[in-house]
Write a protein that binds this DNA or RNA. Sequence first.
DNA 1: CTAATAGTGTCTATTAGACAGTATGTT
DNA 2: AACATACTGTCTAATAGACACTATTAG
Lengths: 274, 274
Amino acid sequence: MTNYPLRDQNGLTEAAFLRQYDPDAFERLAVSVDTVVFSIDSRIQTENYRKLDEQKLTVLLLKRNEHPCLGKWSLPGGFVGEKETLDQAALRVLRDKTGLDDVYIEQLYTFGHPQRDPRMRIISVAYLALIDRSQYQLKNPDSQKITDLAWYEIDFPKNTPTLRLKWEAAGEMLEVGNSPPPALGSPLAFDHGSLILEGLLRLRNKIDYTDIVFNLLPGKFTITHLQQIYEIIGGEKLLAPVFRRKIARKITPTGEYTQERGHRPSQLYVYKDS
Amino acid sequence: MTNYPLRDQNGLTEAAFLRQYDPDAFERLAVSVDTVVFSIDSRIQTENYRKLDEQKLTVLLLKRNEHPCLGKWSLPGGFVGEKETLDQAALRVLRDKTGLDDVYIEQLYTFGHPQRDPRMRIISVAYLALIDRSQYQLKNPDSQKITDLAWYEIDFPKNTPTLRLKWEAAGEMLEVGNSPPPALGSPLAFDHGSLILEGLLRLRNKIDYTDIVFNLLPGKFTITHLQQIYEIIGGEKLLAPVFRRKIARKITPTGEYTQERGHRPSQLYVYKDS
DNA sequence: CTAATAGTGTCTATTAGACAGTATGTT
DNA sequence: AACATACTGTCTAATAGACACTATTAG
């Protein structure tokens, strides 16, 4: 007697077992993807033509126009489709809700507190996305009002438990603490404050041993620009000579220079993938 | 007119919206947790009484006694319950399937390829667990046969894409490559080979900037023992003086020493949480 | 010339790598 | 005594931190 195909305690082969399997035997629940999109805002210094632009780390938020959490700011997110992987779902949702396409994403963490959504049990697979804002055009196909989509600037120095999100144009300000799950009652929808915090910590951690920062930058950039981005992500100032030594291995000079800045021109570099 | 409570386009308040919300509007799917449990096997050197025990990194596998993947080795896993968080689910499943209680776990990665399970769409939140084997007793409440549960020893040197799993007592050997998702057709059930690989990479990465290794160790240990564990996890040999310098800040000497080893006694240390 | 940034040089402090050498238990 | 491991000392190489100094531009 051969033991192939294998039969279980009920004498069923795998094919027979699958035919009688009832997917409704378990609790009803949904899986969504929510993406924390970071980008850099280079704001021009108007008071002094000599000074460099100030860099700000920003996160993309969407004002919810439906229940639950109607009117609150949330991360772009949606349900995982039947025939797509989680990565595909994250990219599709991002494209549909914000118009962003072909962006760098990585899986962040999965949030599954039973009370994190009032509708039903919704488990959210959070993603981190990094984009260079100058290369993308935001749109908002799901809604008419452009004010539904905003880049909130992030203030998150090292050794602080809370982070501040500011939307200057509208004078809005959200404060996110380190509240335990399900982390409701925050000014953000659902537990999205926790997702942003998790994204920031991931970015701060990975900036030192990976090259993901370059997803935030245009193709050509100056070393000082790069250093400023390291500083706002790390939440602390760095010494220029030390930074230049460390970063040298990751970049290649182009021979091109910045112009019309009221000070010595700065060479432009490109990312060296090696 | 006050705008509180908020009403959506249909004029519904959040409470009214939730009353009419239909959770069955979306695809049927399930969420499971699967845990990669690592421990260290200290095997006594019988040929030479002087030599130190050889350390092996091992992963806990369960032989599946039901469809699908009947007869294949799998990670301990199960479905997420209605009223529990993901962490709670991982701990409960581990207790039920293996008898391990009160262990260190952390979330690893979420696997969600549509074809990763033949029954239906099952999204698996993978966990990593680290235990000191000497403190726990394995049992197998779900099954009579003790051979359903085995510690497979791991061979995974640095710069290798594949890993080898060996169960010496039974002469069994599994090879896990770096196959793309859904990573079926492996000698392990479902895509569990990928989960183990992911767990190894996480452990190898985090050993350098966190203190999670100490979860694999008994309360008191020698520096050489600790070094051996760093070596098998990192997949490369280390220099003793360098290792001792670096590890010194994390441990405290006890004044106790090993005995009866045929060579100079070794001091026992404890983990210093600082 | 001045303000502001770009970029280099260099001294010192710290850490990593390599290896020799000493210490100490059991058989 | 011999073996095997425990543990320390030290030289050198590499890296990090700190800061001074020079270079260059627009106005």
